[in-house]
């Protein structure tokens, strides 16, 4: 990520210092604000669709996965039934298992850290963590973005649920473009510097796009993982 590149790389800096990295704080703050507004729209959509206030609020606290929540509520409101709603949400969240493996080292080894940190594994926290240059920074980025996003997302959902349909359409502000752009900004440095990663990620994304109309939500990105077979062909790890 840009902001971290501007500061001197200091792997030996104590963790506390990393948490005060102004660039990281600003970036996390921005994504949290955007996430909070999406949370407001989630709460508002659920209640405007006829669900009681506690449904989006409880779901956000205990499920805490934006895309799965939107999908599950969408299926419920469309009359798809509870089983379809749960299956859709779970399929979308299978990717968090892969993400949790990728950031396990970053989360830490303490029992409390593992149990709490697991709940904070989202697309954004993983992207923030993996974009950092060293382990201390990765840990700071994960926990800062994790706690920040959790607090703002749930506050936003509560406000949106209480306000209901009084709010306008958030699509007007182009927020739906902001989240893919967040991911672009966070993965681009890794893609730029690693041809093997590009060989795996670009065909993977193309495959995900190609199958999207034909398969259930959540499945396309899982199929993208087959791109990893291309990543392995050069055996580049052996030299490291």
């Amino acid at each position: 990520m840009r902001s971290t590149e501007r500061t001197e790389p200091t792997p030996s800096t104590p963790l506390g210092r990393q948490f005060r990295d102004p660039g990281l704080l600003r970036d996390v703050g921005l994504v949290s604000v955007a996430g909070g507004i999406v949370g407001v729209s989630f709460g508002a959509i659920a209640v405007a669709g006829g669900l009681p206030v506690w449904v989006p609020v409880l779901m956000s606290l205990v499920v805490y996965a934006g895309s799965a929540q939107f999908s599950a509520v969408g299926v419920l409101l469309a009359g798809g039934g509870p089983v379809a709603a749960a299956v859709t949400g779970l399929l979308l969240n299978t990717r968090t298992a892969a993400f949790s493996l990728a950031v396990a080292e970053t989360i830490g080894r303490g029992r409390v850290a593992r149990l709490l940190g697991a709940h904070l594994v989202t697309d954004e926290t993983v992207a923030f963590a993996l974009a950092q240059p060293d382990p201390a920074r990765r840990r700071a980025a994960f926990w800062l973005s994790g706690v920040g996003l959790f607090a703002v997302w749930n506050t936003g959902v509560l406000l949106g649920a209480l306000a209901g349909s009084a709010l306008g359409d958030t699509a007007t502000y182009g927020l739906d473009a902001a989240f893919p752009a967040v991911l672009v900004a966070l993965v681009l440095p890794a893609l730029r510097g690693d041809a093997g990663l590009r060989r795996a990620a670009l065909p993977g994304a193309a495959l995900a796009l190609a199958v999207t109309p034909a398969v259930p939500p959540g499945v396309p990105v899982l199929l993208a993982l087959t791109g990893l077979f291309l990543y392995g062909t050069r055996g580049r790890r052996r030299s490291a």
Binding site: A98, V126, L130, L183, V187, A201, V221, A224
Partner: peptide
Amino acid sequence: AVVLLVALLA
């Protein structure tokens, strides 16, 4: 994880 994130953003 990066492959997943790129597929998600696409």
